[in-house]
Nucleic acid binder design. Sequence first.
DNA 1: CTACGATCTACAGTCACTGTAGGAGCAAGC
DNA 2: GCTTGCTCCTACAGTGACTGTAGATCGTAG
Lengths: 132, 132
Amino acid sequence: MLMIGDLARRTGTKVNTIRFYEEIGLMPKAVRTSGGRRIYGEPQARQLGFIRHARELGFSVEEIRSLIALSANPDQDCNEAGAIARRHLASVEDRITRLVALRDALSAATRSCDGGRISDCRVMEAITIMPA
Amino acid sequence: MLMIGDLARRTGTKVNTIRFYEEIGLMPKAVRTSGGRRIYGEPQARQLGFIRHARELGFSVEEIRSLIALSANPDQDCNEAGAIARRHLASVEDRITRLVALRDALSAATRSCDGGRISDCRVMEAITIMPA
DNA sequence: CTACGATCTACAGTCACTGTAGGAGCAAGC
DNA sequence: GCTTGCTCCTACAGTGACTGTAGATCGTAG
């Protein structure tokens, strides 16, 4: 169905990254053509899509691995998935708080810069006074 | 004033990381005691605090380097600082959007998990349907 | 003076990729 | 049939931003 390059384009992943995911076991070993080339289908495309989303959103490879394992036998403990989600929820909320503060500081800083006087430039200060 | 360990505790940085910042030139070469130990004062503590904030908020070392250089001669081009800020503003806003969506999905997932039926667990789906 | 913790240098290891070298598969055009 | 040119292959080195470890030295409290 899909060559590795097609899959890469479809999911916005580098070819090397897909091979890397196979190597570390995040993606299953791909079926090969007689010529030795990896071929993929829809299930693999969906799994890779999931991995990319999760990575972009700050999940570590180990967390993704456990989520995939969990979904492989969904009759198993739901609490484990819930625990993973809860652990992330707190840190996601913290990141949102700090990013909103940064956004406000950055937009204020760019506004004062646009206005023009050099002495009005508060970019450094805006960033420096960010909450921890 | 401050030994490297004190500075580390005050800024929530690892001792090795402070030495690393000195090595790559993010922090100035520290003044040493006769015994060869690094000593720091308030300006260094503030600079390290700035670096940590900026790192946590997703600025790369190179960007931080340019911001520090900028603040060293603040009579210089304000537009450059503004450009750095603006470049970040867009990506910060994008990250906020996606994280808010993730937060909602995660909290929905944990709620349905708490409720208890295993078949109700939607953690994988919640994450998978995240917007790119 | 000795024991102990903090610091020193130097370097190897980690995580999650990313890039490169050198070779092979394969469809299209001559 | 042969060449051109693209995609793919393996294998491995490099990146960014740290983090950890080994072995030596400093400095102070008991």
